[in-house]
Structure formats: structure tokens, C-alpha cells
Design a protein around this nucleic acid. Structure first.
Lengths: 261, 261
DNA sequence: CAGTGGTCTAGACCACGCG
DNA sequence: GCGTGGTCTAGACCACTGG
């Protein structure tokens, strides 16, 4: 880091000092003068270079952190945020041919890129659905759902949490309500139960994580999440599952194919 | 705001004071005790309530802002961030039937929900494509592209910037290279030129905006963007356009349909 | 004008990582 | 032990908003 050239402050500028400092460091990162994983100048070095108070350089560093450009490590320094490997999700990822090989979608996709997938925090319960879930599943007031929650990890790093809601009238006392849902996952079980799948819809939002989400996904500050809600329909046109997932946005690229007509 | 009940600090907790204050305010927002548009207690009020230094309450408020929960207005106060109306983009939005009614996709979608769409900052140039764009379009080294950039607004609020790249061999000296590309937009022109469209692919990322993007979309702090790259293919299988768009994440919900096989 | 948030200073003490 | 970042204080002056 010793050879990084930072400009001086422009005292004639209206731009606040902390923003100028943030601009300098941001430019260094975007121009690759500082590369991912590399250490930024320490607070003391920046204080010395710019001749400002500590809070001023901390403010600048905080800007970069909230932009997702850096991560601070207590006792070590501030580093350009390394970019984790990205999983590309293709629009055919739920095609029957993949499922019939006996692997759930997450496992199949991930092994393809040489990373070690795993799943933890599996919980299963039966409850009254929220209004939103009931609407998506076309359920009425008395109906209940089986709720399967789990967390997906790659090489030990959490990347996604998912919660599935299946009408209890379909899933109760089946393997769908067991922690290990068997080869091919719950979509394979739904087909065995006579709900041949026809299509899925996915709704995608992006936003900053809630506190719990940031903790569950071990997200660095400044990293948004994808919030994806998928609904599975059988060939009778019935919604048979809603899956609510929150994904670390820097672990994923979503990919879809659209028809021209 | 006068009737908001905030807990006291827990002096036995290890959790830093500024995080405890942020927790209290976040809980008030998430529980709807403070609703979108409503004013938070002022810094002086928080200083009085918690008996802490000003920088401590500012730190807490800054956390909420970086989470996208609040916006500060100089001289007025800090407010729960109002949620703008959301545009839902369906996966059939580029279907030929919509285009044939003579409207470009953005205009057609937006008028449907009673908002006033507009487009500005249209620029057109011809240039050598970046490596990424050349790869997506299947171009070789000597080829050039026509670049159409524009910004989309709803009721005067910018929501999306888009940049289209079309091989110059297709678009040069056509209406695609004119500011007004005519009824149905550039996809209609491409079809008239014999490139009957077959399908599109879209790649979606989410991230925090760059400085320029935050300015162009007038994004509040803590609001991420969708970065969407769409490629259009004609029935000969040729990529005829790449469109790179950056969208305010709180103005959009993206929606797709996936086949089960 | 009073009240609000925005910028900045100059200190203090603490907790972590590493040699 | 020393350098790093994390928390917190107690002030100062400024700029914007609204009555």
C-alpha cells in the first residue's frame, strides 16, 4: 500500500473534505490502483496525508463501506472487498431433466462449478399461512401450510436462505414434511404425488438486508440482497409451492430467457 | 412524533450505544410505530432522551440511512423513507403483440398503471464496442456498434437508465440511429430490417450504485440498483442488440416465468 | 429568528491481531 | 507492545427550512 498516490485536497472546492477523501480512495479502487483484497492506507496514514481529524477520515471510509467497496477488519485494516465467486442461475434450472438425475437444484448447479454445496438450519413446521402466501397458493382461511426453511452454503459460506410453503393438504405426512425430502428434492416429491409441474413464476426485488438476514448470510455492510419469490404450478394450474428466498447479491447472477411472443 | 415511545439504553449490554439506538428506531419503523413519510425524533430529542453525545445519535441515524430505512432532509428532519410506487415488469413485456400496437415497451407498461412516462438524455453515437459487448454480440475486432443511451422517468422521477448496443452493420443509416426511433421502438425497426426477433436473455445483478448512477437516478442513500443486461436474438440465432440497464431497485419488481421442462 | 441536520476538530479509552 | 480499527465525548461553526 505504500506506493499508492493520493491527490491533495482541493481547498477551493465546495465538496466536503470527507467526500473528497472518499472520492480519491474510490477512484483508486475503480482504477485498480487498489485491487480486491488489498489494504487501504490506515487511518493514521490518511490523517497524516490529508492533515485532518480522525473522524473526518473515518467518515470517508464509512462512505466506501456503505457503498460495498471496502470491508474493515478490526486490528488489521481496511481492505478492498474481495469479490466472491458468482453463481449463475439459468432459467432452466428447474427443468425436469435435471431433477430426474436425483439431485435438488442447488446441489446440481453448484457441483457443476467445482464448489462444495451444503445445506443447514433445516426446520419444518405446519402453520397458518400469512395473507400473502395464502393468496399466492390460492388457499382459504382454514387452510394450513407446511413450512420448510433452510440455508444454503457454498464452501461453508452462506449464500441463500429459503423458505418453502406447501399446502398442508398436499404435504402433510409425506416426505416433504421430513428434513430429508429425498432424491430430487420436494419438486420430485410433488410430481410423485400427482402434481406434475407445469411452470414457475419468479418475482425479484433487490433491497438492503434486514438485520437478521445480514447475520444469517454473514453479509458485509453495503451488500444488498435479492429477494426472490417463486411459485410452482402443476399442470392443473394449481399453485403447489411458494418459495421465498433471500440471496446475497454478490454471490448471484440471475439469468432468464424471454420469448419474443 | 411526540408520542413515540423509545426504550432506555441497557447499560449491562455489550451492544454499543449507537447500535442500541439504531435498534430502537429500526424496531419502531418495522413495527409501523413510525410510518413511511413520518418524521423521526430530532437529533436534539434523541440526545435528550438517551443522554449521549450528538455524534452517537448521528451514528445511529446513519446506520438506518445506510440500510435504506430513512432519508435525512437538511433543515427539516429525518424521515422514514417513503416507498415509491413499484413497476412490475412481466416476462412477456417484449412480446410482439405489445410492440405491434406502436408503443415501445416502457411507454406501454407505464401508461397501464396511470403514471406519466417520459424519456430524456437521449444520445446516439457509433463506436468500437467493449470486449464484453463484442462478445455478447458475436462481433469481431473491426466491427463497430451504434450506441443509444437514454433515461426513463415516471411522473418526472428517473427510474432507469438504458444503453443499447446494435451492430453498426445493422443500424447505421437507419432510424435506429435517429433520436426518435419511431413507433414500437428499436425492436420494431429491427424486425422491419428483416431481423425477426426470436427470444431475449436477461442477466440480473444487484449492487450498490456507482456515484454517477446514484446521481442520474437521484437515489437515496441505501438504495441498491438492479443491473440488467438483455440480449435480443433474431430467428437466425444472431444477437442483434445488447441493452445494458441500471434500475432503481425500489421502483421495480421483476417477474419471470420459467418452464418446468 | 429558532430548530434542524451537515461538517469538522481534538481529544479519550477500548478491543482486536500479530509479532 | 504497538498499530489497527471501534466507540464515545464535548464542543465549534455552517447551511438549510420554516414561521
Amino acid at each position: 500500500m505504500g506506493d499508492l498516490k493520493l491527490p491533495s485536497l482541493d481547498p477551493t472546492s465546495d465538496r466536503p473534505v470527507f467526500k473528497q477523501i472518499a472520492d480519491h480512495l474510490r477512484a483508486a479502487i475503480e482504477s485498480k490502483a487498489l485491487t480486491p483484497g488489498e489494504k487501504l492506507p490506515s487511518e493514521s496514514q490518511l490523517i497524516g496525508h490529508y492533515e485532518v481529524a480522525r473522524m473526518t477520515v473515518r467518515h470517508a471510509l464509512q462512505i466506501l463501506q456503505s457503498e460495498g467497496l471496502t470491508v474493515a477488519q478490526h486490528g488489521k485494516g481496511v481492505f478492498v472487498r474481495p469479490r466472491p465467486p458468482v453463481r449463475r442461475l439459468a432459467s432452466d434450472r428447474f427443468a425436469r431433466q435435471h431433477r430426474e438425475q436425483g439431485k435438488a437444484a442447488f446441489i446440481a448447479e453448484t457441483e457443476g462449478v467445482g464448489a462444495k454445496p451444503s445445506v443447514d438450519s433445516i426446520t419444518i413446521k405446519e402453520e397458518k399461512p400469512s395473507q400473502d402466501i395464502a393468496l399466492r397458493l390460492g388457499l382459504s382461511d382454514a387452510d394450513r401450510v407446511v413450512v420448510r426453511a433452510r440455508r444454503y452454503l457454498i464452501d461453508g459460506h452462506p449464500v441463500e436462505t429459503a423458505t418453502s410453503y406447501i399446502p398442508a393438504s398436499i404435504a402433510r405426512n409425506t416426505r416433504i414434511a421430513e428434513p430429508n425430502s429425498g432424491p430430487g428434492g420436494i419438486y420430485a416429491r410433488l410430481e410423485e404425488l400427482g402434481h406434475r409441474l407445469d411452470h414457475f413464476t419468479e418475482e425479484i426485488r433487490a433491497r438492503m438486508p434486514l438485520r437478521d438476514e445480514a447475520r444469517a448470510l454473514r453479509l458485509a455492510p453495503g451488500v444488498p440482497v435479492f429477494h426472490l419469490v417463486r411459485t410452482a404450478y402443476d399442470q392443473a394450474g394449481r399453485a403447489v409451492e411458494v418459495c421465498d428466498t433471500v440471496m446475497s447479491s454478490d454471490a448471484y447472477v440471475l439469468s432468464y430467457e424471454l420469448p419474443a411472443q
